[in-house]
Amino acid sequence: MRIRILSIFCLLFGTTIPLSAQDGGLVDFMDSIGKIYVVVGVILVIFIGLVIYLIRLDRKIARLENQIMDND
């Protein structure tokens, strides 16, 4: 679990640097539409983050349910 948090962090740091220097075409495209897809991206990131959290919570509850069943 903790490893997963750390790997998300590493992913964030790792991918940021090489992507930053290139791609004038993408920047031009984003400019032409008022950069609205940046907002879409931000909302997607939040949504995906919340879903990942819910999946983890779901698993933890399932594990607890199993353990309680076994104990009985």
């Binding site: 964030l12 992507l19 950069k35 940046v38 990131v45």
Partner: peptide, 14 residues
């Protein structure tokens, strides 16, 4: 973490 990630996405285009 979500704030930092969304900030990075926003920063990419600003």
């Amino acid at each position: 973490i979500l704030g930092l990630t969304t900030g990075a996405v926003w920063a990419r285009f600003t």
